[in-house]
Amino acid sequence: MKSYIVQLAATRLLPVTLILSLLVFYRGHNEPGGGFIGGLMAAAGFIFYAMAYDTAKAEKKLRVSPLMLIVAGLSFAFISTLPSLFAGNPFFTGEWISLNIPLLGKLKLGSPLLFDLGVYLAVWGVIITIIFNVMEE
């Protein structure tokens, strides 16, 4: 299935899916979306890339190993529990800060976002690991 058209499409679509996945991820707070779906979309981009070329090229394009994505995801999820401790609230309480950025307006950041980022990375890594392993067989 080494078609030049598919390869070109996969190369062009990869950044698009990544940006879209980040958008879905960010929108996940008050609207449908979130880390899980975002992670799936990010993985989908790389899976398409691997289908067009092969898994080795896709892994090279990813730069970090899928395992490191999972580790980073777990770490972010773990770190997201820490702010509640420093704030003296019960474990896992969502802690929020509001930033006023000129142009963009108000930006709310908080530990649930960090947790969601962890989910995003972990899902991304897990899906890629599974699919790439199956594709290599």
């Binding site: 899980f36 897990v126 599974i130 392993n133 199956v134 067989e137």
Partner: peptide, 16 residues
């Protein structure tokens, strides 16, 4: 669903 998805993937790999 998420749990089921992960486990089905594992089971399919096991079967293979």
């Amino acid at each position: 669903i998420v749990i089921g998805f992960g486990i089905t993937a594992f089971f399919l790999a096991l079967m293979y």
